[in-house]
Nucleic acid binder design. Structure first.
Ligand code: SF4
Ligand code: SF4
Lengths: 142, 142
DNA sequence: CGTAATGTTACCAGAATAGTAATCTTTATC
DNA sequence: GATAAAGATTACTATTCTGGTAACATTACG
């Protein structure tokens, strides 16, 4: 169906949740997991990777939790997606042209490069600051 | 890596190959397979589906072959992609919002809807007529 | 030390992918 | 009509990917 994986979606839920709170607020992963319907044993790896990428800042130990590493307005959807899906590349030959012997003269490749760039530009333009501001239903920001 | 499947890519090779020939030219599947590096036993299913979708017209029996069902300028990359990947939907909730309980208030979904529409528009704008015209190396049009 | 939290690793079942192969149907031609 | 050349259809396999679970390790507070 050509969609992003669940990991990526879960990651966006986590970042969105934090973006809706007070700037700098710190919450436990288990809390987010229950509120955003993320399998509890799953969220560990996701948070781990997001912090490795520099999107989240975590504090271990009792009283710890997770928070945004930067203001939500500086975190793009593209960043979150690429943290789990790798660099955007709608066809294999976009990321590594050498993989296909036809790539030298293939006009379709050019089309995929263009499509990938367009998509990348769009996702770069979406920040979690914008997304958090679009929330209408206060119920979802407990 | 979030890319299209090989089937889809093979399909675009086939359509491109036909688009580079004289309009209405008919060629055997085995011929395309060998020239465009497509596994010979693979091309059957691909051609079959492309003709079911109305992109290719096939003629069975001795002396038969496959040809474009319409002028190349009227066949878009999007059509070929959707024939194998299904309707474009960069996240599961774009095609079927009911699948996610959060979709009612989720601003991320709106972002994915937008991204999907942008991508769809781009791919609709790419026709195989244009692609065939971009071929520079005459070697690839034997 | 005990407890609460994240970090890391290993594991598993099921689905999807890429590819192979065999068999059936149609049809031009001799 | 026999034959052979083509596409149509179906079934199968091996490998990888995915979504998910579980267990254990690490850190920090009090
Ligand atoms: S045939 Fe063209 S589009 Fe397909 S993988 Fe090769 S270079 Fe890319
Ligand atoms: S959380 Fe939002 S983006 Fe993710 S599946 Fe649900 S509605 Fe779609």
């Amino acid at each position: 169906m050509f969609t992003i994986g669940r990991n990526t979606d879960y990651a966006s839920r986590i970042v969105l949740h934090l973006a809706c709170l007070e700037p700098g607020a710190r919450v436990t992963a288990a809390d987010i997991a229950s509120r955003r319907l993320i399998p509890s044993a799953f969220i560990r790896r996701i948070v781990s990777r997001l912090s490795a990428v520099g999107v989240l800042a975590t504090v271990r130990g009792s009283g710890g939790g997770i928070a945004l590493a930067r203001p939500a307005a500086q975190i793009t959807l593209r960043e979150v997606v690429e943290a789990f899906e790798g660099p955007l590349s709608l066809n294999v030959c976009v990321a590594s042209p050498a993989i296909c012997p036809l790539s030298v003269t293939c006009p379709v490749q050019q089309a995929w490069v263009g499509a990938t760039q367009h998509l990348a530009a769009f996702l770069t333009g979406v920040t979690f600051g914008d997304l958090a501001r679009e929330i209408r239903d206060p119920q979802s920001v407990p």
